[in-house]
């Protein structure tokens, strides 16, 4: 008996040791990011690559902030309205597809789901063409193609499937009797949505906003195809900063951290909802 307990304790110890070893490995890139970003240029030689800075300086952070700030602002202009819009569409769709179903709703839902998995490369060339045409048609140069509104449109539209899925799966858990009762009371579809469904939607709204905000903030593919120098969001600008040969490592690393701060904050503060989004997205990557 003591042998069994002893063995079990040993195995717990081994598991804990392994987990800690993996934590160290997982944190290596973070160590590098932080340490390098605080180094002055004089300590940039390879021999000191893994050392802590001898003199800590914010110089790289200052320069990185100056270079990246327009991109960060563009990303805010994209991700804040974009995730709110996604939320509205997803919520209405999810409500109808779970509680106000029409013939063929299942088929439609499956067709939506496929939209979640398509590699966006498959729509990129027509999308660029359409946005260019919209620019010409409306006479608004640099709005749809080469502008934040066009990028937002793309993200909102291609976000419809995942947002619909999250809301639908959440609304399925609302008892049908509640909806039925409201209907018996004479409330129509929208009235029921407003007074019964929306008030209990907070968790799903949080999940969708976090999910969409993160994917809009981190997206590079749409951004690189659809935006231009004045509308480049964070990721494109970051890639340009880091891609320039002249940019010292310290600035690249500081810029990379700056670019990740908003999503990291969300992750730290609202990790619970972030997890739920991931699980809902178990159908998506």
């Amino acid at each position: 008996m003591t042998a069994v307990i002893g063995r079990r304790r040993a195995s717990t110890g081994v598991r804990l040791a392994l987990l800690i070893a993996f934590v160290v490995i997982f944190l290596i890139p973070i160590y590098v990011l932080l340490v390098t970003s605080f180094k002055p240029l004089t300590e940039a030689d390879p021999g000191q690559a893994w050392n802590l800075p001898r003199t800590w300086t914010f110089e790289a952070w200052r320069v990185a902030w100056e270079k990246l700030a327009p991109g960060l602002w563009n990303s805010v202009l994209l991700a804040v309205p974009g995730s709110l819009l996604s939320c509205v569409l997803g919520s209405l769709n999810g409500y109808v597809l779970s509680k106000w179903r029409f013939p063929g709703a299942d088929l439609l839902f499956t067709l939506f789901l496929f939209g979640m998995f398509i590699p966006y490369q498959g729509v990129m060339i027509p999308l660029v063409q359409l946005l260019v045409n919209l620019n010409e048609l409306t006479g608004l140069q640099g709005v749809f193609y080469g502008g934040i509104p066009g990028l937002t449109l793309a993200h909102v539209v291609y976000g419809i499937p995942i947002c619909t899925l999250i809301f639908r799966n959440y609304y399925v858990t609302i008892p049908d009797e509640l909806i039925e009762a409201s209907r018996v009371d004479g409330a129509g579809m929208l009235r029921t949505y407003w007074s019964v469904v929306l008030p209990v939607s907070a968790p799903a709204i949080a999940v969708v906003i976090i999910w969409q905000f993160t994917s809009m903030w981190n997206d590079f593919l749409f951004a690189v195809f659809l935006t231009g120098p004045t509308s480049w969001p964070t990721t494109v600008m970051l890639n340009n900063i880091a891609g320039a040969q002249a940019t010292p490592y310290s600035q690249q690393m500081a810029a990379a951290i700056l670019a990740s701060v908003p999503t990291m904050l969300i992750y730290v503060l609202l990790g619970r909802f972030f997890m739920r989004g991931l699980m809902a997205g178990a159908l998506k990557g």
Partner: peptide, 17 residues
């Protein structure tokens, strides 16, 4: 939380480090 946080970062930022 530690194993999951890399997911919150963009591939572009990850790529740099």
């Amino acid at each position: 939380a530690i194993y999951l946080f890399p997911m919150a970062i963009s591939f572009v930022a990850t790529g740099i480090v």
